[in-house]
Amino acid sequence: MRTRTALAAGAAAVLIALGSVVTVAAAGGRESAAAPAVPAADSADAGFARYMAVHHQQAVEMSFLVRDSTDDEEIRTLAYDIANTQANQRGMMLGWLDLWGLPKVSSDGPMAWMGMRSEPGKDGALMPGMATKAELDRLRKTEGEAAEILYLRLMTAHHKGGIHMAEGCVSACEVEAEHRLAKGMVEAQQSEIDLMAELLRKRGVRE
């Protein structure tokens, strides 16, 4: 039921997001005469929407994994909130790309829009903060408090990478709705990092 609710909310969020972009494009905002309403395929706006959607998808996956691996209500609630929020935001960003008529993948690589090297890190992570395949496999096989601790650590790193990307959009994105979304991500994910640090301390573990 929660999954269906999240999907329904995500669809609604896409419609709201598309309306926001159209409204902003018509009214002005950050889209001035020097900044077209439809971003270029290699712009920060397109790059952020394209690859933060991928980044978010992993957070959703990790959250559903831990939700099925523990009975702890604090962790399950946090995981549900993260999955729901990031699924909705992912739908918004993919909706923008559809509205702009831009591809959802790019040969430039995931971090080119920030002027960074786009090859996967030596640990196999695709973008800053993302868990590796080995880490995801470990989370799938772990249960109880061990799963909670692993999830909190992985999600803390994931959020830090997400904040880094969102701050890049805050600095460079021209679409007002996307700029606002990125700024909100920075604030919300930092708040969740603080919460996760507290949850780790309650389990006798430092971040």
Rank of each mutant, 00 (worst) to 15 (best):
Q86E: 03
L154S: 03
D98M: 00
P120S: 09
D123T: 09
Q189M: 00
G115N: 12
A26V: 10
G47V: 05
T23M: 06
L65N: 05
V24Q: 06
H158G: 01
V24S: 05
M114S: 02
E207Y: 01
T132E: 02
A146G: 12
G184V: 03
R138M: 08
M111T: 09
A134Q: 14
E167D: 11
A125F: 05
S171E: 13
A59M: 11
R2S: 13
S63P: 02
G129V: 14
A188G: 07
K141R: 15
E174L: 06
K122N: 14
G204W: 10
R206K: 14
A182M: 02
T77K: 04
E207K: 01
E61H: 11
G115E: 13
G144W: 03
D45E: 11
T77C: 00
M114Q: 07
S107H: 03
G29R: 09
G101P: 00
M52R: 07
V175K: 00
A8R: 15
Y151Q: 09
F48I: 03
G121C: 07
Y80K: 04
Q57K: 14
A40K: 03
S43H: 13
S32L: 09
V175D: 10
N88L: 12
A157W: 04
D42T: 13
L136V: 09
D72E: 09
S107C: 02
T132A: 00
A188Q: 08
F64K: 09
Q58F: 12
I82T: 14
S43K: 04
G121V: 03
R201I: 06
K133A: 14
L136H: 06
V38C: 07
E135P: 01
S20Y: 07
L150A: 00
M52P: 05
E178S: 06
A172D: 13
T5W: 14
A6D: 14
W96Q: 07
R203W: 11
A172Q: 14
T3F: 02
E167A: 01
A12H: 15
L102I: 11
G95C: 06
A44V: 11
M165R: 01
D72F: 00
M62L: 15
A147Q: 12
H159G: 09
A35F: 09
E167L: 05
A87E: 14
G91R: 14
L15D: 11
C173S: 09
A46T: 12
A125R: 13
I16Q: 13
A157G: 02
R30N: 05
T77I: 02
G95E: 11
I193G: 06
